[in-house]
Design a binder for these strands. Sequence first.
DNA 1: ACAAAAGTGTTATCAGTACACCCATGC
DNA 2: GCATGGGTGTACTGATAACACTTTTGT
Lengths: 245, 245
Amino acid sequence: MLHKKIQNISVDCVVFGYDTKTKSLNVLLIRRYLESQDKAEVLVDDHVITGYHMYEHETLDETATRVLKELTGLTNQYKKQFKAFGDPDRLTGEKDLLWINNEKFNHRTITIAYYFLLKTEEVDINNNQYQANWFPVKDLPNLGFDHEQIIMEALENLKTKCLSEPIIFELLPDRFTINEVQDVYQSILNIELDNRNFRRKLISKKCIIALDEKQTGVSKKPSQLYMFSKDVYEKLFQKNYLISI
Amino acid sequence: MLHKKIQNISVDCVVFGYDTKTKSLNVLLIRRYLESQDKAEVLVDDHVITGYHMYEHETLDETATRVLKELTGLTNQYKKQFKAFGDPDRLTGEKDLLWINNEKFNHRTITIAYYFLLKTEEVDINNNQYQANWFPVKDLPNLGFDHEQIIMEALENLKTKCLSEPIIFELLPDRFTINEVQDVYQSILNIELDNRNFRRKLISKKCIIALDEKQTGVSKKPSQLYMFSKDVYEKLFQKNYLISI
DNA sequence: ACAAAAGTGTTATCAGTACACCCATGC
DNA sequence: GCATGGGTGTACTGATAACACTTTTGT
């Protein structure tokens, strides 16, 4: 009883990570692979985001947290419920039908979609059963179900939200350089920023704290490291009601 | 088959309207009333927002549109899906249980919540079966289920959204005064704005068009009427990526 | 010494804020 | 003629945007 699935409700999770090396915003996808019964033919071989049915006893947030933990082992990551997807035809692609029949899924399932922001280096993708891999949002592979749409809407929401809340730091290591922050903004928003102006603006914030440390192991001028203090941010936060329609 | 209910999924609609007379942001609520079988006792007498089960063949947006139409007769109103509510205990208040048992509802129902923005004067609340009435968001009556939470989260979303999109005009008549717009912002955001600055800012926008008309039937200086041109707005729109964390 | 990325300053323009009085109308 | 809300102008301040060169390090 306690772990009874709700057959027609699932939670799907778009997991965002940022790769500082390639300066790419990535999504964690799992492989969807199905052979015919005689193993002569590959019926389905593409990718999906991670998700699972809701259990009777869970809140939506708990389901999302459980799904992320199962994939990455991580808990306490930034998460945001951003939209429910419930079109009657959202699972009716040819390969989706093959997959659903094989897995005995409900054809009429609505999904509550979350996105997570996490530090790529905290995830060991080789250490899980799902053949999970990072893919750049700018170059996604073939995706099953309506998952491309879900990822794109997650990204839209993230674009808006990163402008007004300091969630960008969820994607970076605890100690980061100013240029890394700029790179993440540029990757998410798909724009170019002026380095001097950006640097001045960011450093002027009290919640961005310069550390007594520089980068090591780089073959160039090592850059100053900073941290973000959520504590300071929350103490100084005041909502501004700037109407800009 | 076509109209088969999905028993554990509903769409609930927070209907916002603005009363220019009382300068109040209102929510349209329906009465929830239940007597005991011998009619000797009133078991439930409070209010809820409007909602209904999703049908198998519908998208979520279609369900929301249908629910609004049934309550108000209106279609084509601004609507926004803003959150799903799925706590296991969201329908477990004492009166909620009485109500659910009487209506044969599913105890474990998740709801996808929408809010609508509409022009109060377009709704005839006397002309429907639900005993619907407007209530100020600042002075809500007792609400059933988790509907107070749903309304409050809808309001939070509306607060954020009205700062960056011209949705405020959905709440006003087609022809409005600048001061009316200011009043709506003040009601939604619960702040005071400087009239001169607000007026200058609004009039400077090309999508706000002065009409060759003034108010009539007022016992004071009649004010200039304006309209909002969605057309002009969309032509001139450009996203600004102002990072303000 | 060279390559590679880090870091730095000034100016012009625009937007936001604060603030108090006169105006036009209906009664 | 008076009560009511409508409408107006200016000066200050802070933020944004545009723009090119020097510095520091590892190799």
